[in-house]
Write a protein that binds this DNA or RNA. Sequence first.
DNA 1: AAATATTTTTAGATAACTCTAAAATATTTT
DNA 2: AAAATATTTTAGAGTTATCTAAAAATATTT
Lengths: 218, 218
Amino acid sequence: MLSFAEENYLKAIFHLSDSGATEVSTNAISDHMSTKPASVSDMIRKLDEKGMVTYKKYYGVNISKKGKIMALQVIRKHRLWEVFLVDKLKFNWDEVHEVAEQLEHIRSGLLIQRLDEFLDYPKVDPHGDPIPDENGDMAVAKKTPLDKVEVGVKGKIVAVNDEGSSFLQYLDKIGIYLGARLEVTGRVDFDGSMEILIDNKQKVFISREVSQNILITD
Amino acid sequence: MLSFAEENYLKAIFHLSDSGATEVSTNAISDHMSTKPASVSDMIRKLDEKGMVTYKKYYGVNISKKGKIMALQVIRKHRLWEVFLVDKLKFNWDEVHEVAEQLEHIRSGLLIQRLDEFLDYPKVDPHGDPIPDENGDMAVAKKTPLDKVEVGVKGKIVAVNDEGSSFLQYLDKIGIYLGARLEVTGRVDFDGSMEILIDNKQKVFISREVSQNILITD
DNA sequence: AAATATTTTTAGATAACTCTAAAATATTTT
DNA sequence: AAAATATTTTAGAGTTATCTAAAAATATTT
């Protein structure tokens, strides 16, 4: 059985290896988790001994099959709790992350099975991220970051890449929400900023940084 | 802010001082928590420093006002989660305790406020124990342990004293549940065992040990 | 009231997780 | 390729919560 700390490290390693190379560096983990590299070295040695990752000194970490399963279970719990908080307890999407970080560590197979049922087997969380099933499988829809899209393209906002409350509150303010229809109406090559039309109504300007964190389907 | 361990100690001290003298002994705590007396000594010294209890060496512990507030907050969370598990997730009353022991430590004021609202402000948990409000106040109904009751007395089962699953499963088996009407129809002075009639239907025999853990209102 | 037993505390150790500072290794620059 | 820089690991230490064993204090028995 894994400790909370071990679960958090595995989750971080999973996310980092998911969005990039298979090899994850010590520094990347320490950045992502706001711990010191020295602490990471220690922990990944331990996770290697437990068979959760394979670790070569000075080289990097690869998550193992076993580790991936554990990580996906934690991610499943995290995302189901987020759905619960938004759908049942009327949390806003920018308020759920911290609480879900705690709830994801509750250990009870029955609990998470019943929660899934209670929520009617949701497929995505309030940020559009897919929810793994009991086996760790999840539907991976093709999602395009808005900054990679040409002028004239239309699509639907299906997910965001940043769950920080300041980013999400900003989206609220400019009228962007999950499921919104949008069209790219203009683009500044110099800085990558864009003009977009939301639901054929509001026109808003967003920076490249923002557009990188908005995902659409075409 | 208190650690999980500190919260658990406070809860134990609160319960022990609630059901008996104000002074709680080191051994009573260590029994209740399945830790060693030496660990208890350490912890209560720490809790004293934090102003949660007053502690005199070799004498015992008294919970402070501050400590009582903290304990009641944890108890509030525990009992609300139990209601959630039974009412919403269809847990049986004997399945909730362990999970609630974990959930009670989740830190989020908003969460517990919204959960309370979602559950429609319940006054008691699935074992009949009262749920403290945000201020720690709770309705203390007069409840009589069944073993203190004369033959012929009628009443309603309103709570149980033991949340262990083996006890609760036994009650299920013999047809005892919260809210059931009962009448004491017989009693053996020698060993304190009883015959009771539930809902004017089933006649069951129970030992003194069981009757001590069933609470009724008259 | 002395002897015995029980309870409680102290002292020292261990495990998990984190840190800082220094050493080792790898990468980049000149 | 050697020097400079960056990354990663090791060594040693601190914190929290637990334990065992021994010492100290209190309670009980004779």
